Amino acid sequence: MTTTSTDAANTAVLRHAMVASQLRTNAVSDARVVTAMATVPREDFIPGTEAALVYRDAALSLGGGRFQNPPLATARLLTEAEIVSQDRVLLIGAATGYTAALIARLGAKVTAVESDPALAVIARTALAGLPDVEVVEGPLAQGHAADAPYDVLVIDGAVEDLPLALTEQLRVDGRIATGLVERGVTRLAAGRRTAGGQGVQAFVDGECVILPGFARPAAFRF
């Protein structure tokens, strides 16, 4: 599909409307995150979807039971992650690469893990021109220990259980931003790795897509 100058102008209007109505009014206080989301074209990472849908404050189906997080959820997670230039970031749930592009825009080096082969292909294509971004295909809950330790762990979705296999890939005092599923409610949470594990606390209830592969083991019953 050919993109005309009119199409580009229309999507730019939608992108800036997203920033004004969804981010600035909802505690996205990191100006660098706002600038990144005002600059990176979200539509480039969700091919075949109308731009008007791409910029809605709602989860967006990517097929195969996977969804792109709402813009606000991603923005709040990146704000709490406090990413700075030269951070090494482990991103879990790369999907089609949009969040990895935002993190790269913040000046970080990104290892983005994606379990769905079709989504990983889209992400690699969309991110091909960006330096310091690697898309790794594999189980989300396993991360990518080969490049550890990381400074920041961002899980762009909600999980029932935060595995030690992921938090142990962080340096001690490394930052964590993730969605959590608690009794059917999704929440956004942040914290740090400690010498003895991790401390993560929810800071707001909100829509956040649930990622596969993180279900808490069922309790044993007699």
Rank of each mutant, 00 (worst) to 15 (best):
Q68D: 08
T99S: 13
D57Y: 10
L102R: 01
I176D: 03
A123E: 09
L72Y: 10
V33G: 09
G63F: 04
A51F: 02
A95V: 03
A165V: 03
D156A: 11
T74Q: 08
N10R: 14
L77P: 08
Q201G: 04
T2L: 14
G191P: 04
A20M: 08
L170I: 07
N69V: 12
G143R: 04
A94C: 15
A128Y: 00
D173A: 14
T186K: 03
G143K: 03
V89F: 12
V152K: 04
R216D: 00
E182K: 12
V209T: 13
D161I: 06
T11N: 06
I122T: 15
Q198T: 05
L166P: 12
A94R: 05
R192C: 01
N10A: 14
Q86Y: 05
A148H: 04
S21M: 13
L130F: 02
V152H: 06
L119Y: 09
T39M: 03
R175T: 10
A17E: 14
T74C: 09
M18Y: 08
V154A: 05
P41L: 02
A38H: 02
E137Q: 13
V84A: 12
V185Y: 03
M37R: 05
T2Q: 12
A177N: 08
G129K: 09
E160Q: 15
T178V: 15
T194N: 06
D161C: 11
E168A: 15
L60I: 15
G206F: 10
R175C: 01
A38W: 07
A81I: 09
A202W: 10
R183E: 09
A17K: 15
G174V: 04
T3Q: 13
T79G: 04
L91T: 11
L90F: 08
I103H: 01
L23H: 07
A126P: 07
T6Q: 14
T96C: 11
N69M: 14
V13D: 06
D156V: 11
A190Q: 03
V19G: 02
G143S: 07
T125C: 00
G64L: 09
A100V: 02
